[in-house]
Design a protein around this nucleic acid. Sequence first.
DNA 1: CGTTCACTTGAACCCCCTCAAGGATGGTGG
DNA 2: CCACCATCCTTGAGGGGGTTCAAGTGAACG
Lengths: 237, 237
Amino acid sequence: MERVRQACRSCSVSQLCLPAGLEASELDRLESALEKKMTLHRGESLYTVGDPLESLFAVRSGCMKTSVLGSDGVEQIIGFALPGELLGLDALSVERHQCTAVALDTTAICVLPFARIEDLAAELPSLNRQLLRIMGSEISREQDLLSLLANKRASERLASFLDNLSKRFSDRGYSGRDFRLYMSRQEMANYLGMTIETVSRTLSAWQREGLIHIESKALSILDPEGLRAIAGNCVAG
Amino acid sequence: MERVRQACRSCSVSQLCLPAGLEASELDRLESALEKKMTLHRGESLYTVGDPLESLFAVRSGCMKTSVLGSDGVEQIIGFALPGELLGLDALSVERHQCTAVALDTTAICVLPFARIEDLAAELPSLNRQLLRIMGSEISREQDLLSLLANKRASERLASFLDNLSKRFSDRGYSGRDFRLYMSRQEMANYLGMTIETVSRTLSAWQREGLIHIESKALSILDPEGLRAIAGNCVAG
DNA sequence: CGTTCACTTGAACCCCCTCAAGGATGGTGG
DNA sequence: CCACCATCCTTGAGGGGGTTCAAGTGAACG
């Protein structure tokens, strides 16, 4: 961990993150509240179910997964966070984290001490508004995912997922056609409510049909329109 | 619609709602921001996808359902709101409602003009904190529901749902053993990602086994422990 | 070069959906 | 008050999408 200065204004995803919509003077103050950054390696966890809420976190680079533990101890993956996305919002309800966040790759994280964010948000309406906006979009995102899980077939879910990842990568300046899937087949399957075998079979079929090319975790989308057609024009996931 | 005074402090569910944790003087100010209340009848909608965000809403009595529309136009029910619960939070992201809220019964609603809530929250830290807390628990709630949909069998989902309703009714001072299901079988099925036939068959089976008694929408839980055992001790839903 | 772990592929089964018909309920108008 | 109709719910039979079980392949790493 190290202190950072000018962290946000030099960050390529700041417009997707908490600073979006803040003016320069406001940004100064946000940056001074932002205490430190940290780096996680694959498999390391940022927080775990039950940890007290101390900070919110922003992904700066890399990829995280968040998951809840069912009563039976079965993991359910809730989301994959790419750069610019905020983590830890579920802890605002009971001041304890309700899920676990684990790095899928070497991942840089900005630590936002909640007490300072809260104080600052009381002074800066646009920051508070942005915090509410991010929480609102997290609620929307989960609603779309619910819709996906409840009434789509396995292939539609998987196609929606890949299409959604594609869109998010291109929003971040990466290629939306060729990208790396940070997660394992098992993690995709878990997230989408299916088994690893079904994921594998479906991907293999699409590869035979020329929709995609996939080798290990490297994905190329050869026919984005075809994929979207399978997804039923549903970009959730 | 009519102006209300002392709305919150005379409300039996205020401790489950936005006023929770506020002091008397703060409550005064919240009540003055709270403009009016309104009554909806079965089938009437409070807001629809795409409506601009003007207000948040609190359920005072009755029951509402919220749903999103998939790209294919299929409705997906996201939740059922009982008294004390806030509606409209998903609109904070893009200032437009992302879902539709419809009354399942005659329902009294408190209207909270968002601009005034936002201004007031900037002055009252505890109100802002409570707003964040409610949004956080909405995120948690949806996460639990995701876990339910992704890796539970139909009967586990239905049992979790009834158990969850039971808990919420008893939190509100009603019986957790005998209560009215405001929603139709179709709406339960949609919410839980199953078909109406499966819901009906499962309820019939439980009735034969003596777990429940159900007649139309009137439910009696005869064996709460048995139901929880089927749910796998999972109270989400 | 052997071990491990992730992934792929095949075969059989089953839970739940689909399709279909019948029964109950509640509101409406004569 | 009853007939009528629309809607909701129940029950049955059959089929299919996806899971489960099982074996094999491939790549990474010591």
